[in-house]
């Protein structure tokens, strides 16, 4: 159903991502990844053993945690990156890493830039990383595999009436997922309608009273945490269907922040939170 959209979006993204990297004669043997999402993609392509450096936040899969760190995701260390003698550096652009990445490039290291904000970005980055590693076919297969698993989640909730969903990422202040986020797309894939899609802004800060006015049927709370004795932010909002019907769901946040190969798992967990009856949990 959604596939045509992706096909339209892809050439646009390719056009936006700057000049193509210079062609490599041999596949790069030493790779540095500067983003958690890219590290996951490299492992999913079966090229994890080529990584010689990752960012401090690259924590998945477990093997990635044992690799040398070359600085933070937001501020990588130019020296540490260059000292790892990479054949290619894979990076997601951020305001904090622009200068560092430019310096790495000027040191003569090949840099490949990919985006990680939306599903279309994810397909493009899996293909770009595959191509950069000389694994273009594996990249295509990975895209097909992740898309197939995501479609499987869509299929399970396809016949169900969409539920109104609010996806919360911060409590003080209250910050929710707006339009143009991966999270918004995953809520749709999971059979939900994001009630914050029209608020404006990618991560809008909203008043608690707006939750009452929008009356979501499900609140997916990625900020709630799990510790005992927490103050229930939404507990008093008795007129909100999600509160009334006990559908305020705590959600371990990190996975759905990441545009990587685990996106179908996040979509499935969201679908189980939004339509528990379709997943045998009544």
């Amino acid at each position: 159903m959604r596939r045509p959209t992706f096909l339209v979006a892809l050439p646009l993204l390719a056009a936006c991502s700057g000049r193509p990297p210079p062609p490599a004669t041999t596949p790069p043997a030493r790779v540095v990844s500067l983003a958690p999402s890219i590290t996951e993609i490299v492992y999913a392509l079966g090229a994890g053993d080529r990584l010689v450096g990752v960012c401090a936040q690259c924590d998945y899969p477990a093997a990635a945690a044992r690799l040398p760190r070359v600085g933070g995701y937001l501020v990588p260390s130019v020296e540490a990156v260059v000292a790892a003698r990479p054949d290619v550096v894979l990076v997601v652009p951020s305001p904090g890493n622009r200068d560092a990445v430019r310096a790495v490039e000027q040191a003569g290291v090949r840099v490949v830039v990919v985006q990680d904000r939306t599903l279309a970005d994810l397909w493009a980055s899996m293909r770009a990383v595959g191509a950069a590693l000389g694994l273009a076919d594996a990249g295509e297969r990975l895209v097909a595999d992740v898309q197939r698993r995501l479609e499987a989640v869509r299929g399970r909730v396809a016949g169900l009436p969409p539920r109104r969903v609010l996806l919360v990422v911060g409590h003080t202040p209250l910050v929710v997922a707006g339009r143009g986020t991966l999270q918004d797309e995953l809520v749709s894939a999971a059979g939900g309608v994001n009630v914050a899609a029209d608020i404006g802004g990618v991560w809008p800060q909203i008043s608690l009273e707006l939750v009452v006015a929008r009356a979501p049927e499900v609140i997916v709370d990625a900020a709630m945490g799990t510790e005992e004795g927490r103050h229930d932010l939404f507990g008093g909002l008795a007129t909100v269907p999600a509160v009334r019907d006990g559908r305020v769901v705590a959600f371990a946040g990190e996975a759905i922040f990441r545009a990587g190969p685990r996106v179908p798992d996040a979509a499935r967990a969201l679908a189980a939170a939004i339509h528990p009856e379709a997943f045998g949990a009544g």
Binding site: Q57, L74, Q205, G253
Partner: peptide, 20 residues
Amino acid sequence: SYAQAHGVLFWLMGSLSGQS
């Protein structure tokens, strides 16, 4: 982590909402 940095930024900006 990226998500935590996000939360810290918002917390630092100040807010009166959401206290018990």
